[in-house]
């Protein structure tokens, strides 16, 4: 029998929602526990086994100098490092700070600003250490997480398509909300993975999975403006969970001010 690979789950600046997706795999959890040794997963158990780890799953972004150092240590003890979620892959909602003055935030929000030790930016893990695979989403899709883990365990490439959400809509037979209802939808420039969740309920895509493989945000932006979305509205649509992802950031900056 093959040795069970050791799995570790790490948290950086995040809401924990993505690693909870792992615990949310109720039907598959026993199979997962059978396939790997869960060696480090504080959300699930306080028992920690020493590294090195065969597979490290990293949630969250880098927002402090201490975390910038800690991710290097995680990298050192991990054979394969997979980042999960919008925070780890793009900086998350907290990357809104990247567009503003953090010192000002600190002085307004906290009673004792001097206690707060933080970086001026929130950045993706891959900006700090090499990463084997980035799984997108806010939160990630649990079926995709199992697919990535399953692919790792079986030595194959994960089936995680990086095309637009539109492809998922068409596979499902959804009527396009943008063309048929006039609802602004980020689907054409957004990475697939959610199964076109919002358009399936007649809502425009919010871009939770970040930019797709070849996003033309400028063209979609022009279409939104032509459909009476205000420049300010366009900026707000692009600045959510993946505000710091390059394609969304650049397009939002073009319409700012």
């Amino acid at each position: 029998m093959r040795r069970k690979p050791k799995l570790a789950v790490w948290k950086f600046a995040s809401c924990d929602g993505c690693q909870l997706s792992l615990l949310d795999c109720e039907d598959e959890l026993l199979a997962l526990a059978g396939a790997v040794r869960i060696a480090h997963f504080i959300e699930a158990s306080s028992k920690r086994l020493k590294g090195p780890y065969d597979l490290s799953i990293v949630e969250g972004s880098i927002t402090t100098a201490a975390d910038a150092e800690r991710i290097r240590e995680v990298r050192r003890v991990s054979k394969v490092l997979v980042t999960i979620g919008a925070c780890a892959t793009a900086g998350g909602i907290q990357a809104l700070r990247n567009f503003r003055d953090v010192a000002e935030f600190r002085s307004i929000v906290y009673a004792k600003p001097e206690y707060i030790d933080t970086l001026a930016t929130s950045t993706a893990i891959a900006e700090h250490v090499p990463v084997e695979f980035e799984l997108r989403g806010c939160p990630i899709d649990k079926r995709q997480l199992l697919e990535v883990i399953g692919a790792f365990l079986n030595g194959r490439k994960p089936n995680v398509a990086s095309h637009s959400v539109c492809v998922e809509c068409k596979l499902k037979g959804n009527v396009c909300v943008m063309v048929a209802h006039g609802t602004p939808c980020l689907g054409p420039i957004t990475h697939a993975g959610c199964g076109a969740l919002c358009p399936s309920y007649a809502r425009g895509c919010y871009g939770c999975f970040g930019p797709m493989e070849t996003p033309n945000a400028a063209s979609l932006g022009r279409a939104f403006l032509a459909a009476n979305v205000s420049p300010r509205g366009l900026v707000r649509m692009l600045r959510t969970f993946n505000a710091n992802a390059e394609a969304f950031r650049k397009e939002s900056e073009r319409h700012e001010g």
């Binding site: 637009s164 539109c166 054409p188 033309n216 400028a218 063209s219």
Partner: peptide, 13 residues
């Protein structure tokens, strides 16, 4: 190409 989103809608419909 400046306008095309490469979203694939045209091919899928």
């Amino acid at each position: 190409a400046d306008r095309c989103l490469a979203c694939a809608n045209c091919t899928l419909v």
